[in-house]
């Protein structure tokens, strides 16, 4: 079932992205972008990232793309205007793009991720303790698994506020056994409180800056007229 869903979402995401590249009309590009981004949101849901998927839908699809279409409407000089590229440019970009895709895809598919995961865990053990006194099994090194721990909203929220439920304070489970790398580690990290604050200030700056740009241009228009 989830495999079928994955295939559908993956095809829609890739196909939408391809159509964005291939179509000439900007509003059609926006439509295909919506298809692609919504399918990526679907992939996020499949990966158990419900909050990230919802954010993707709300901010990207609902916000950014509407903003882009709004921009198209404000700037298009005629109905369904298209600005075409040179055919030679398109061919060049197509060839380079295919080569790049082949490179990236073959790299991604040739790496043995699980083995790297195990090696990374060993390296972490070395770094933390200087000696391998307890080799952790790869099973206990799994990432955040929503099937075990429900939804991600609370943990994400607390992570942004500086407390990591999934890492800090990870308590011993019922039978007393520790998860591999977390034994005795009860330091509280700052989580993502500082980046969160920086991003909020950044958003404010962008808001003021964009409003200033929009205002400045209107003043020039009035002076010219």
């Amino acid at each position: 079932m989830s495999t079928v869903l994955f295939v559908i979402y993956a095809l829609a995401a890739s196909g939408g992205a391809l159509a964005v590249v291939l179509s000439q009309n900007v509003v059609r590009m926006a439509f295909w972008l919506v298809i692609s981004l919504s399918s990526v949101a679907g992939l996020f849901f499949l990966l158990g990232a419900d909050f990230v998927g919802a954010t993707q839908l709300l901010i990207y699809v609902g916000g950014t793309v509407v903003l882009l279409i709004f921009g198209v409407m404000l700037t298009s000089s005629g109905p369904y205007g298209t600005i075409k590229s040179q055919p030679a440019e398109v061919v060049q970009a197509g060839i380079i793009g295919m080569a790049f895709l082949a490179l990236v895809a073959s790299t991604v598919l040739s790496v043995n991720w699980e083995a790297n995961e195990v090696r990374l865990a060993h390296a972490n053990d070395h770094a933390e303790h200087g000696h391998v006194h307890e080799v952790s099994e790869p099973e206990s090194e799994q990432g955040y698994n929503p099937e075990e721990s429900g939804n991600t909203t609370r943990s994400l929220g607390t992570a942004l506020l500086g407390v990591r439920f999934d890492k800090d304070l990870s308590l011993e489970s019922e039978d007393g056994s520790n998860h591999g790398h977390t034994h005795g580690n009860h330091e509280v990290s700052a989580g993502y409180l500082l980046p969160f604050e920086i991003v909020s200030v950044h958003l404010l700056v962008v808001l003021v800056g964009a409003a200033y740009l929009a205002r400045a241009k209107r003043r020039v228009d009035v002076e010219n007229a």
């Binding site: 509003v27 419900d50 991600t152």
Partner: peptide
């Protein structure tokens, strides 16, 4: 789901997209 309210609003806001596309 825990993010129910958030995602409901997100999905509802997609309606605007259809209306803007229809207008264009």
């Amino acid at each position: 789901m825990d993010a129910g309210l958030f995602i409901a609003l997100a999905v509802l806001s997609l309606e605007v997209l259809g209306i803007v596309l229809a207008g264009y």
